[in-house]
């Protein structure tokens, strides 16, 4: 299994994801520099968290035009698995690979803590190791995670079961997002964007008893091993 983690200037969770993919899940993993044009034959691409280009202007807005992004978009549109975590989610929105947009958190403050999430859709490639409606815990760490989508778009997300993760309830919602949305997929189900950080809760040593992030990656691995096709 081959995975690529894109490093933009200002990415700061690239090594964290890299470590989880390569050391825990034995992916043959590359850090892909943002100025590259072409992708090797990856089974999974990750856009990691951080502050790409300082998050100046809007989170993810400038990264969306990085040289590598054309290839990322092609890969995603051809059905390749793409996971966008935090800043990566914001980049997916700015690239129109996922619908909606991100605003600053309702209380205007950066927030870093564990939150409870509900697995709203466990039928995706990314979540089939969770139970339906299971309550799990993952850390969030962001200042702009206030997901917004208009009514029509929201209905379409609901109709197509694209809301994958929600904050478990209003009081667990750290940013004011519409419908407590924490993570969504595209209609086809090969692209997932989420604000929480699964890579921060995949190892016992740093999140004892709460390895809920592990199962997100193990879902992906299981799917790939079951013969998910490779996009090149």
């Amino acid at each position: 299994m081959k995975a690529g983690v894109v490093t933009f200037p200002g990415s700061n969770c690239d090594h964290d994801v890299y470590n989880v993919l390569s050391k825990i899940f034995s992916f043959d993993t590359d850090l892909i520099w943002h100025q590259k044009r072409h992708l090797n034959n990856y089974d999974l691409l990750v856009l990691p968290g951080g502050f790409s280009y300082g998050d100046y202007l809007r989170s993810g807005a400038i990264a969306r035009f990085a040289r590598i992004m054309d290839s990322v978009i092609d890969f995603a549109l051809a059905g390749g698995l793409v996971l966008g975590i935090c800043n990566g989610f914001q980049i997916l929105l700015e690239s129109n690979l996922l619908p909606g947009a991100m605003k600053v958190n309702d209380n205007l403050k950066f927030v870093c803590k564990n939150v409870s999430l509900e697995v709203n859709n466990n039928k995706t490639t990314f979540t089939n190791h969770y139970c339906e409606n299971e309550i799990i815990e993952m850390p969030v760490a962001h200042g702009e995670g206030n997901y917004y989508i208009d009514k029509k778009g929201l209905n379409s997300l609901i109709d197509n079961n694209q809301i994958v993760l929600r904050y478990a309830n209003q009081s667990e919602n750290p940013n004011g997002s519409v419908e407590n949305i924490a993570g969504i997929s595209n209609n086809k189900g090969n692209i997932l964007g989420l604000m929480p950080h699964p890579e921060r809760c995949s190892e016992d040593i740093i999140s004892p008893g709460r390895r809920d992030g592990y199962r997100l990656f193990s879902s992906i691995v299981a799917n790939l091993k079951a013969g998910g096709e490779q996009i090149g």
Binding site: L57, R58, A61, I62, L93, E94, A101, Y148
Partner: peptide, 9 residues
């Protein structure tokens, strides 16, 4: 349209 504003919001 491309960069300075996000037309969604």
């Amino acid at each position: 349209k491309k960069l300075l504003a996000n037309p969604v919001i």
